[in-house]
């Protein structure tokens, strides 16, 4: 009963967002059951139309589009989630270190982050991926590090407001170490803004990975990925076929859903974003 009551308080947009996110998680987790064919499997002619056999037709190499979109949920969303987690661990750690230590540690870290943030992210990522190559571990590290600068900013500013409070000062005087303060005093008080930021960063990383894949330097073939699928099948668009934009639609639906949830969390905690 209590559960139902708390659900009825959630605005319909946020509920819709949650339903969509769960649907994506389900499809990603059970991709091998949902998809009728494998993601690398060549099953028919190139570019055949929609039919009973191939729900959304086949792609430029004769692989089943629908199956690849389903596997794309696992690959694209998986990579984006992994990057967001990594970016959060790095960004939060350094942000909290900067806030607790203060002084020159804070100054150096903030200066480095300011410099990194002043280079346009897409251009920087393209430069780094050209230099370091486009393997998946490199891609994940590069994007996570670039994105962690923004997490650093938020974590630092939230933590700085907490560090000056009496209960943190008391703990510091008691002689607790850095990790203890971060885990027991700061992080529990940072959950709400960080959760909302996680949603925002996830959307950003997700769109960013899709953009890099679209440009051919993100997730590499033959792995099914929504960004590169649009690029590979783009010629079909000039014939008026909407199939190639379906992966784009899949990206858009997930980001909108996450944004709905983020708006609700921000509204609840009194924060707002522009």
């Amino acid at each position: 009963m209590r559960f139902l009551k708390s659900i009825s308080k959630i605005p319909p947009t946020a509920l819709l967002g949650m339903v969509v996110v769960f649907a994506y998680i389900f499809v990603a987790a059970f991709a091998h059951w949902v998809a009728p064919y494998g993601q690398f499997q060549i099953v028919g002619d190139q570019y055949s139309g929609w039919s009973d056999k191939f729900l959304l037709g086949t792609d430029n190499l004769g692989r089943d589009m629908f199956s690849r979109i389903v596997y794309g949920a696992r690959n694209t969303v998986g990579v984006a989630l992994l990057i967001t987690f990594l970016s959060f661990s790095v960004g939060c750690t350094f942000g909290i270190v900067a806030a607790i230590r203060g002084g020159w540690v804070d100054a150096v870290l903030s200066w480095a982050v300011d410099i990194l943030m002043s280079i346009p992210q897409l251009i920087f990522a393209m430069l780094l991926l050209t230099i370091l190559g486009t393997s998946l571990p490199v891609l994940i590290t590069v994007v996570a590090l670039l994105d962690s600068t923004r997490v650093f900013r938020l974590a630092r500013s939230v933590a700085r407001n907490l560090v000056v409070l009496d209960f943190v000062e008391a703990v510091q005087l008691r002689g607790e170490g850095f990790w203890w303060i971060a885990r027991h005093e700061l992080l529990p008080n940072m959950v709400a803004p960080l959760t909302a930021e996680f949603g925002i960063r996830f959307c950003f990383v997700f769109l960013f990975i899709a953009a890099l894949s679209f440009l051919g330097i993100g997730v590499q073939p033959p792995t099914a990925d929504w960004g590169s699928m649009i690029r590979d099948n783009a010629t079909l668009i000039t014939f008026g076929d909407i199939t190639p934009v379906i992966p784009g639609l899949a990206i858009a639906c997930l980001t909108i859903a996450v944004n709905f949830i983020v708006d609700w969390i921000l509204g609840k905690t009194g924060g707002s974003r522009v």
């Binding site: 679209f214 649009i230 000039t238 190639p244 784009g248 944004n259």
Partner: peptide, 18 residues
């Protein structure tokens, strides 16, 4: 506008082309 932020640029561009 929330939708517009959520769409990838190339998706918007291809929809316009379509």
């Amino acid at each position: 506008t929330l939708g517009a932020i959520s769409f990838p640029e190339f998706f918007v561009a291809y929809i316009l082309v379509l």
